[in-house]
Design a protein around this nucleic acid. Structure first.
Lengths: 227, 227
DNA sequence: CGGGGTCTTGAATATCGTCAATCGGCGTGG
DNA sequence: CCACGCCGATTGACGATATTCAAGACCCCG
């Protein structure tokens, strides 16, 4: 265990400074308009770190993001994957309680926290949106915890179904993340993830076109596994 | 596994109807005043169930509450324990996503969801409170997920430290919940919980005065275990 | 064609779960 | 007051699932 890659963190402020700074109007929370700027993060680039000031909120335009926490000994828990359309990084406290990195090259819309907050103060509609976004994250987190008490096969099944629903590709699911990311999300090791996928493949529940390209041959069987 | 006790659910509406209905003014969210009525729940009584309408929000006055989700085969995940002072049951959606039961005889302050919402619509201060309560739950849930990737000993250590901090008794911790509740919270079996406690006791990290009455002899050692 | 990272596979081990028996506290009733 | 019975907790022996350690395969990119 513990062969985690640490990458050069490129602070957001640097990027923001270079990018024309928040003059673009774009939809951030559903159809509510707040200021924002699009920024591109390279593969494995840090978007924000645990403990940093939560000065911005984010929305994935393209690519994908992993959010995670690390224990002192290096064990990592991936708390969520964010895909195009997903909003993340909203905090009610000053500091981020988790870290976020781009999984692959990722375009992200960034808005000042203070802008969003001041709008929310006068517009209860926006305040409600802000809150329901957090509540939705809470639900996801609770379901994630529910995942972590299941067997390896059940966790993988749930993961595949979730990804299939969110990535809705053309006949197959194209996973952006590595086995290590999946393992850390599911609370397993990469070996167990790999073995379980092989096993599902041998039972022709799924088909592995490539390691990250998967066909769900029998989704209902996955659903049964989903307990 | 699966010897879960199901108890007769006493719906809140019955209780509320009997109790004079929300004319009492009392602090619910910090120092914000909203309507509320105190209701007592017996040991193992259901406060609300997953899927039920989330028409009320709750605050523990005395006693203790477990919130949980169940899988189709009966495995139960306890998502949180609520102790005196804790607010719970806030939902942004119409329905509760989890269930809640009184662990022992528990007095609870109940407020109409609609009252709280309508206040929040006009008072951005209250809206902010509502949101930060949800955000705090989210943090707890994420830390809970972090627990579930640790070893049995680490989970128990973290649990004991958390309870000690929240229950702050006189030299010892008096746990309101059963081993089954603890096991379902930590994603372990009662046997493993019991064995681990015995183990910690043998190393004189803790002392078991009674099965639910525990002295933390060496909290710093527990902290080290906390990874 | 080569090399590095990612992924898969195998064998041995460890941790936790399962099954089962016993203990212990507590309330009830004889 | 003590005995009984019940429920929760503990303990033991065994087994299963996931981890660890190790080797090798695959694949993309230079």
């Amino acid at each position: 265990m513990i062969t985690r890659t640490r990458t050069t963190p490129s602070t957001l402020d640097q990027c923001a400074a270079k990018s024309g700074v928040f003059t673009v109007q774009a939809p951030l929370f559903d159809n509510v308009q707040v200021g924002g700027a699009a920024i591109t993060f390279e593969r494995n680039a840090e978007i924000f770190g645990e403990g940093e000031n939560a000065d911005y909120v984010y929305k994935v335009l393209s690519g994908s993001v992993r959010a995670y926490k690390v224990l002192s000994d290096g064990r990592r828990q991936v708390t969520a994957f964010y895909l195009p359309g997903d909003v993340f990084g909203i905090e009610s406290e000053l500091e981020h309680s988790i870290s976020a990195e781009a999984i692959d090259r990722t375009a992200i819309l960034v808005a000042r926290r203070s802008s969003v907050f001041s709008i929310a103060d006068s517009d209860s509609e926006v305040a409600r949106h802000l809150w329901s976004a957090t509540a939705e994250e809470l639900r996801r987190s609770q379901n994630h915890a529910l995942l972590l008490i299941k067997t390896a096969k059940e966790r993988i099944a749930a993961f595949l179904l979730d990804m299939a629903a969110r990535l809705a590709g053309k006949g197959f699911v194209e996973l952006p993340m590595s086995r290590q990311d999946i393992a850390d999300y599911l609370g397993l090791t990469i070996e167990t993830v790999s073995r379980t996928l092989t096993q599902l493949s041998e039972g022709s529940t799924i088909q592995l076109l490539a390691s990250r390209r998967i066909v769900l041959r029998n989704p209902s069987r996955l659903n049964e596994l989903n307990a």
